[in-house]
Simulated assay, not measured.
Amino acid sequence: MGKRPPYSNDIEAARYPPPPPPSYHIPQSTQWFSWLVPLFFLANVVLFVYSMYLNDCPGYLNENDCLYYHYLGRYSFQPFSENPLLGPSVRTLRVMGALEKDLVVGENEAWRFLTCMFLHAGVIHLLANMFSLLFIGVRLENEFGFFKIGLLYMFSGFGGSLLSVLHLGDSAAPNTISVGASGALFGLLGAMLSELLTNWTIYLNKCAALTSLLLIIGLNLAVGFLPHVDNSAHIGGFLAGYFLGFVLLIRPQYGYVNRKYVPPGYNVKRKSKYKWYQYVFLVLALIILLIGYAYGLALLYIGKPPDVMFSISGTNPI
Results as ranks from 00 to 15, higher is better:
Leu133Glu: 12
Leu133His: 13
Leu133Cys: 09
Leu133Lys: 09
Leu134Phe: 12
Ile136Gly: 01
Ile136Arg: 00
Ile136Thr: 13
Ile136Tyr: 02
Gly137Arg: 08
Gly137Leu: 14
Gly137Tyr: 13
Gly137Asn: 10
Gly137Ser: 10
Gly137Trp: 14
Gly137Lys: 08
Gly137Val: 09
Val138Gln: 04
Val138Cys: 12
Arg139Ala: 04
Arg139Gly: 00
Arg139Tyr: 00
Leu140Asp: 04
Glu141Gln: 04
Glu141His: 07
Glu141Tyr: 05
Glu141Arg: 03
Asn142Arg: 15
Glu143Ser: 08
Glu143Gly: 00
Glu143Thr: 07
Glu143Leu: 09
Phe144Pro: 01
Phe144Ile: 06
Phe144Val: 06
Phe144Ser: 00
Gly145Tyr: 12
Phe147Gly: 01
Phe147Thr: 01
Phe147Ser: 06
Lys148Glu: 09
Lys148Gln: 11
Lys148Tyr: 08
Lys148Trp: 10
Ile149His: 06
Ile149Pro: 12
Ile149Cys: 07
Ile149Val: 15
Gly150Glu: 00
Gly150Met: 02
Gly150Gln: 01
Gly150Asp: 00
Leu151Gln: 13
Leu151Asn: 13
Leu151Thr: 15
Leu151Ser: 15
Tyr153His: 09
Tyr153Ile: 02
Met154Gln: 09
Met154Lys: 02
Met154Asn: 13
Phe155Lys: 09
Ser156His: 11
Ser156Asp: 10
Ser156Thr: 11
Gly157Ala: 02
Gly157Trp: 08
Phe158Gln: 01
Phe158Ile: 03
Phe158His: 02
Phe158Lys: 01
Phe158Leu: 05
Gly159Tyr: 07
Gly159Leu: 05
Gly159His: 08
Gly160Met: 10
Gly160Val: 15
Gly160Cys: 12
Ser161Ala: 15
Leu162Glu: 05
Leu163Asn: 08
Leu163Pro: 00
Leu163Val: 10
Leu163Ser: 07
Leu163His: 05
Leu163Glu: 03
Ser164Asp: 06
Ser164Val: 12
Ser164Lys: 11
Val165His: 01
Val165Lys: 00
Leu166Pro: 06
Leu166Arg: 08
Leu166Asp: 04
Leu166His: 01
Leu166Gln: 05
Leu166Phe: 04
His167Phe: 13
His167Leu: 05
His167Lys: 09
Leu168Pro: 00
Leu168His: 04
Leu168Trp: 03
Gly169Asn: 12
Gly169Trp: 13
Gly169Thr: 06
Gly169Ile: 09
Asp170Gln: 14
Asp170Glu: 13
Ser171Gln: 06
Ser171Leu: 12
Ser171Val: 07
Ala172Gln: 10
Ala172Ile: 13
Ala172Thr: 13
Ala173Thr: 12
Pro174Thr: 14
Pro174Gln: 11
Pro174Ala: 14
Pro174Asp: 14
